[in-house]
Every structure is written in structure tokens, then in C-alpha cells.
Amino acid sequence: MEKIHLEFDVDGRNFVSAGTATAKVKACLKEMGINPDDVKRVAIAMYEGEINMVIHANGGKALVDIYVDKVVVKLIDTGKGIADINLAMKPGYSTASDDIRQLGFGAGMGLPNMKKHSDECIVESEVGKGTTVTLITNLH
């Protein structure tokens, strides 16, 4: 199988459409007959990343490459960036504002979820420039 490449624009601050890219990827993987547990892992990790781009950056791009043995999701934004990545990865750490918390976000569990639900979670960020999260999930 040739790899399949998908690209999505993620709209910043739009909570209604947040998760659309992930839903499409999930449907695509399901249709390809990929193992449901793997589909779920990819979807959970990607959704957290997509929501982070909506909440913490001003949206961005999601690039998805589906190979025979793995799925690579790249979430690229040009938002404010993360000053201390180790701190951001800690369960419970969040800078979400009160109005964001009222929507049910801000538990500080997004990045830990991404790590847990992928085989490799690489966070690269530069303050003032943006953040790129790469999620690699092996398929079984």
C-alpha cells in the first residue's frame, strides 16, 4: 500500500468545529479496516492535539500520513509556543483560562493523554513562533 496523506486546517477558537479533523481521520482509518484499538489511540491523541491548537494557539494545520504499519500525525501551529515543554507534559499542568475551563478543558491531561495513546509523542516548540506535535502510532 502506498501511504495515504491527509491535510486539514484547524480553525482557532472555534469550539464547534474542533475535533472535525480527528473525526474525519477516525472515519478514514475505520473504513480502511484498521484495528479498532489502534484507531481509538490515534483518534484520542489527535483530538487532544487538535483541541490544544484551538485553545492555546490560533488553530493550525494537521497533517496525517497513514502507512501500512503506522500512522503519523503532525499538528503544526504558529501560536504562542510553550516555554517549558517538560512542565507542559506534566499531568495537571494547565494555563487554560477560566472561560476555557468552563467548557471542560484545562485539566492538564491533554499532553499526557497524547503520550499515553501514541508510541512516540514529540513536542517541538519555540516561544512566539509556534508548536509542532508529532504523534506516531504503530498499527497492530
Partner: peptide
């Protein structure tokens, strides 16, 4: 009610009890 907790932990086929009502649920 904290969506990232639910996301990471709610078991498949469970009943999810919440007071959240926004679209992200």
C-alpha cells in the same frame, strides 16, 4: 466533567455521567 480525563479514561460502552452540555461532549 473534565474532558481530557473522560477522553483518556472512559471505558468503551460505558454510560458517561456528566453535567457538561457543550458541543465538545
Amino acid at each position: 466533567d473534565l474532558l481530557s480525563f473522560v477522553m483518556g479514561r472512559a471505558p468503551e460502552d460505558s454510560a458517561w455521567f456528566t453535567i457538561m452540555t457543550n458541543v465538545n461532549i
